[in-house]
């Protein structure tokens, strides 16, 4: 078995790298740039029950070491994703993590039921943290009880393991993680974007048509590291870490904080080849620090201390 191999519920990955949801479409655009079979897995763009057009443009704005987006969950709807998008990934033979979203509990449940029944889908990622839609999304992700309740209901119908994607826009992410763990989640994805805003100083108007958007990119990596570090000590669920990762060094840092696998998002826009380049670089970095298997990296930061450093 390869030294980069990692194993998480439903996700048997030859390396810990997968593109993050929303930053990679359904894969076919990037398949024009490289062979996707090198990836550890792929997270596909959020599916809702019906097709959604999303928000008006402009939908992106650049910020220091990051970017704001307010796409608004544009997607063709779960049926078309099952018919057209997921089958197109078959030749690459990599685990598929299917991100699901909705406006109501019923929608989340129905999308999960449909998408998790696809033999090609390895696991689902419950998106309760999208900051850019008026209904659903983050509403479920900022109240412990509704998050737990939704997790329980989605778990009940899902044929595949369920990862809950947590929002950083909460006062206590540890309690949120504990709530969804207790509700039966199989894993966590963290973090989604931080809500932010950018104005045109000349006019005073927001750049984004949606006014606010989700901040991603290197600017948020320290937040992600801190949250993964805290949560990983308080829950026993595996964590797919994400938030500003753009280099192999970032991957190992995030694994040290407690992640078992790492998703790369915004960096794909900067460099379409970033995922394969990171994967190629990882063995060299492991050699440099004398680590044989990458899975040993997970949670190193806390293993070195007798009591958790976290103050929470």
């Amino acid at each position: 078995m390869s030294r980069l191999h990692v194993s998480l519920p439903g996700l048997n990955m030859k390396n810990p790298i997968l593109p993050a949801s929303g930053c990679f479409g359904f894969g076919k655009e990037y398949a024009k740039w490289y062979d996707l079979s090198v990836l550890g897995g792929i997270t596909i763009k959020a599916a809702t029950l019906e097709g959604r057009f999303g928000n008006p443009t402009p939908r992106v704005a650049e910020t220091e070491s990051g970017m704001l987006n307010a796409i608004g969950l544009q997607n063709p709807g779960v049926m078309k994703i099952l018919e057209n998008e997921i089958p197109a990934l078959e030749p690459f033979n990599i685990p598929i993590l299917a991100n699901i979203a909705g406006s109501t509990e019923e929608e989340y449940i129905e999308v999960t039921r449909q998408i998790s029944s696809s033999p090609q889908v390895s696991a689902v990622e419950l998106n309760i943290s999208c900051p850019n839609v008026k209904e659903g999304g983050i509403q479920f992700g900022t109240h412990y009880e509704s998050a737990a309740d939704l997790t329980r209901k989605v778990k009940a119908v899902s044929e595949k393991p369920v990862y809950v994607k947590l929002s950083p826009n909460v006062s206590n992410i540890v309690e949120m993680a504990q709530a969804v763990e207790e509700a039966g989640a199989d894993g966590l994805s963290m973090i989604n974007t931080l809500v932010g805003m950018k104005l045109d100083w000349r006019t005073g108007n927001p750049i984004l048509a949606n006014k606010t958007g989700g901040l991603s990119g290197p600017a948020i990596k320290p937040v992600a590291i801190r949250m993964i570090y805290e949560v990983s000590q308080k829950v026993s669920l595996p964590i797919i870490g994400m938030g500003g990762v753009s280099t192999a060094e970032d991957v190992l840092e995030m694994m040290s904080a407690g992640a078992s696998a790492v998703a790369v998002g915004t960096a794909n826009f900067v460099n379409p080849y970033v995922c394969p380049e990171i994967i190629e670089q990882l063995p060299k970095l492991l050699d440099e620090i004398g680590v044989e298997n990458i899975s040993e990296m997970t949670g190193r930061s806390t293993k070195q201390w007798k009591t958790p450093l976290s103050s929470r």
Binding site: R59, N268, F269, P272
Partner: peptide
């Protein structure tokens, strides 16, 4: 013309009805 993210069709930033 539009503000773009990825530039290759993956991020859905520059859509037009």
């Amino acid at each position: 013309e539009e503000r773009m993210g990825c530039g290759i069709g993956a991020c859905f930033a520059c859509v037009c009805p």
